[in-house]
């Protein structure tokens, strides 16, 4: 048994992906899975809040009035595709192809940015129509749930930019590979959360 904190490649073999080649990498990946579990519970609580409060519109704007099918469908498609491109970045990383991996990450970041753009536009639009989070319990929980997801995505974008920089400087090493893998897990997880926002918030809202 060795210590956790190593970045030393132990017997690099073509059969082991680089991110798993050090014990440090394996530990951090496992740790990150558990972090995702905590984030899952966090979103579960926010979804519960939303589900309980969404009919309490207090005479203000309702879901039916606000949600716009083409808008949220576009957001959903963008995120789904970005999850795919992010998966390809990990795949190319495993094949040891740095520029391909970076390329897919850039695509992912761009898709993420356009998602954020659409979301911000949606929020601004709601606010302009008087649907602020102070208006009703429904809107408080809507903005908080969807906004928390949006913050996660924004953070993911910053994180990917930092990884892109490191990839450019250092190439694929046990450390950068592990980071790509982990940011990938994060991104796919956010995609899953969004699917539930799509279902519980938007589809239920226009049902």
């Amino acid at each position: 048994m060795s210590l956790a904190h190593e970045e030393v490649l132990s017997t690099p073999s073509s059969d082991v992906p680089v991110e798993y080649s050090t014990e440090d990498g394996a530990l951090k990946i496992f740790g990150f899975w558990i972090f995702l579990a905590t984030d899952l519970i966090l979103f579960a609580c926010l979804f519960t809040m939303y589900q309980i409060l969404h009919i309490n519109t207090a005479g203000g704007p309702t879901e039916q009035e606000l949600y716009d099918v083409p808008g949220f469908t576009a957001e959903t498609l963008i995120l789904l595709v970005s999850s795919f491109t992010c998966g390809l970045a990990t795949l190319e990383m495993r094949r040891g192809r740095r520029s391909a991996s970076m390329g897919w990450l850039v695509v992912t970041v761009l898709l993420g940015l356009s998602f954020i753009f659409l979301e911000v536009r949606e929020f601004v639009d709601y606010v302009n129509r008087g649907a602020t989070m102070q208006r009703s319990a429904f809107l408080s929980s809507f903005f908080t749930l969807v906004g928390t997801h949006g913050c996660h995505v924004s953070l993911g974008i910053l994180w990917m930019l930092s990884i892109l920089y490191q990839l450019g400087r250092r190439g694929i090493s046990a450390m950068t590979a592990r980071k790509i893998f982990i940011v990938g897990l994060y991104w796919h997880f956010l995609d899953v959360v969004w699917v539930f926002i799509f279902t519980v918030v938007y589809l239920q809202g226009v049902m």
């Binding site: 048994m1 060795s2 210590l3 190593e6 030393v8 132990s10 017997t11 059969d15 082991v16 992906p17 798993y20 080649s21 050090t22 014990e23 394996a26």
Partner: peptide
Amino acid sequence: MSSEHHEELR
């Protein structure tokens, strides 16, 4: 420094 990762990745 031994590593436990002589086993394969499941």
